[in-house]
Amino acid sequence: MIISQTPLRVSFFGGGTDIAEFYQQHGGLVLSSTIDKFVYIIVKARYDDRIVLNYSEREVVDSVDDIRHNIFRETLRLVGITGGLEITSIADIPSQGSGLGSSSSFTVGLVNALYAFLGDQKGPREIAEIACRIEIEILKEPIGKQDQYAAAFGGFRSYRFLPTGEVEVKSLAVRDNEKLALEGVCRMFFTGITRKASAVLSDQLKNLSSREAELLAIKQIAETSAHVLERGDARGLGELLDQSWQEKRRISSKISSPEIDGIYSRAMEAGALRGKAPGCRGGGVLLLCSPQRSTLSVEGCHERTGPTTVLIHATWNQDPSERRRQCRAAGLAEAPSGASIALY
């Protein structure tokens, strides 16, 4: 039995510049971090040749072609597994419409687990590229490449998307005390509002030619923002997050919604410095920066935004070297990617 554990991510800066239609012309840059919330994929051999899938639904089929779930179906096809296994997917937080890259974390975790099931351990770059191929080339999802790379590599990193299609991956110099400082001032709320990212990104792509200036501004903010993360600068981080989000809101009316705007306004009244919605879907998670002294009032603001708004307690995920140490201590064998693998 194989269990993969793949982190979700918070995209701080540069979201939207990882779409091919933009980076092929101008290059793209995204700064993000994975967090300690995960998608788990469990793969187990069966006694027969059937395929059993357990997610929000349950599928029992005799052929890969009969699978309704697009990512399960196309990943099994690509890997070359035709039957005789059961796969279960679970997640630490609601995985649909969270704005934390859960769909790509699912794909990365599934790719990682299925190749491990076959005894073929892949590296993080290869896993990320395979996941991109499945989601972007095969399924034609109008999405970028940042989420697959963040899930595969893990940690605080920058991802530079070159016009050639290559991706440069660099670690950000965020020390442990700066990570703790950021954890102390950053709060995430799950709003209970969900939309498919593809619907919002389709609208963004449609407006790309007329909104190129906004994406260039988003990229420029990303180019100059690494220092606020590396210093653990809450005020600077909040201001830049807000600037980037305001630019992104101009690209598509679906980036935000009256409900999200209302929650954001109430958070500012409660003492938050600024923030953003890390995804692009007009819902999901809202990331807020608040000074230590106003943390309680900001945390309390979700109680006034409706019964579905929930505070998410998350810490920034460790870099892979630290995760490897923890996996060894827990008796897990980790793949050379952001997703760890347990073998049973």
Score class of each variant (00 low, 15 high):
A173M: 09
R160F: 09
V174R: 00
A234L: 04
N70K: 12
L288V: 04
G99M: 04
G97P: 03
A267W: 12
K254L: 10
V30P: 00
D233C: 02
E59W: 09
G184V: 06
V174N: 05
G101I: 07
P7I: 07
E230A: 03
G236S: 01
G155P: 04
K140G: 04
T194N: 05
A45C: 04
V310M: 09
S158N: 06
I127C: 01
C280A: 13
P124Q: 15
Q5M: 15
E57S: 08
L31K: 05
G232V: 07
Q25P: 04
E166G: 03
S33G: 01
Y40S: 00
P163H: 07
F13G: 00
E178Q: 14
S198Y: 14
G192S: 05
R324L: 10
N70F: 11
Q318N: 15
A335N: 15
E57I: 09
R160E: 12
K254I: 10
S198L: 03
E86S: 09
A333F: 12
V228K: 04
F13W: 09
V285D: 05
F38L: 03
G232Q: 07
E141C: 02
V108S: 02
G80T: 08
A272M: 06
G97R: 08
G300F: 13
D242I: 02
L332P: 01
I255C: 04
H302M: 01
F12K: 00
L162C: 07
Y47E: 12
I193V: 13
D49R: 13
I71S: 02
V64K: 09
S252Y: 11
G262Q: 11
E247K: 14
L85E: 06
A116M: 06
I341R: 12
V200G: 10
P291L: 11
A173S: 11
K170G: 01
P291S: 08
R211N: 11
G275V: 06
E303M: 11
V111R: 07
G80V: 07
V43P: 03
L205C: 04
P163Q: 02
L208W: 14
L296E: 14
T224E: 15
G300Y: 13
F22M: 00
D48F: 08
A222H: 08
V52P: 00
S244E: 13
E247Y: 15
L76K: 06
E299I: 03
G144S: 05
K37H: 07
I19H: 07
G192P: 00
A150E: 05
Q148W: 15
K170T: 15
V285Q: 08
L216D: 03
A222T: 06
I87G: 00
G338I: 06
L172S: 02
I2R: 09
T224M: 08
